[in-house]
């Protein structure tokens, strides 16, 4: 049984993520971690925006914070987000990876090494290849890998890079991804 859902995206992913999270509300049995490298959004109100349109509680993850089910955590801008041990976040201010921080690769690798087969990872859209290495680690440690069909977004570099690198479990439309994630709810 999965213990954590990770969603990675960059350009073009905000509306997709909103739709997805709305479909999972009002209660979801897993913690949801969102990693995105949009420009510094501490003060841009992205968290407020998500809180207004999504029924699940949304907040910025902070260092050594305990992770709760049914809660949406965003990786804070300009830090890498990691899993310290089951149920706890950690942050680092180490160098950027593939020119970005937070890095989806860094989070997925760290989460995969802690949760192994109990990790559910989704890559939506974006204009760079961040996430591909992370998804490879998730897959190799037995986690479930899901990628948005690159034909369904204008920003297909990111999902396409994952498909190049990994033999993922599902390549699907947003509706199908939603259904897949909802099935966790029922099982």
């Amino acid at each position: 049984m999965s213990k954590l859902l990770a969603i990675g995206f960059s350009a073009g992913g905000i509306p997709l993520t909103q739709t997805l999270l709305n479909a999972l509300a009002p209660a979801y049995p897993l913690p949801i971690v969102v990693i995105t490298h949009l420009p510094n959004y501490y003060d841009s109100g992205l968290i407020d925006l998500f809180n207004r349109v999504v029924a699940l509680p949304v907040s910025m993850a902070f260092d050594k914070e305990p992770i709760h089910s049914g809660h949406v955590y965003f990786a804070p801008p300009d830090y890498h987000l990691l899993i310290e041990r089951p149920g706890y976040f950690a942050l680092s201010h180490d160098a950027r990876v593939k020119a970005v921080r937070p890095s989806i690769d860094v989070f997925l690798k760290s989460a995969a090494e802690i949760y192994e087969k109990d990790l559910l990872a989704v890559i939506l859209s974006g204009a760079n290849s961040d996430g591909a290495d992370g998804m490879a680690t998730v897959k190799s440690l037995g986690g479930v890998t899901i990628v948005l069909d690159p034909l369904q977004t204008d920003f297909r570099t990111m999902p396409a890079a994952v498909l190049d690198a990994v033999d993922v479990d599902y390549v699907a439309s947003l509706d199908d991804i939603t259904a897949l994630l909802q099935s966790v709810q029922e099982s």
Binding site: L82, I83, R85, S110
Partner: peptide, 9 residues
């Protein structure tokens, strides 16, 4: 020290 970031380094 926290292990997650230490491991990366």
């Amino acid at each position: 020290y926290a292990r997650a970031s230490l491991k990366r380094r």
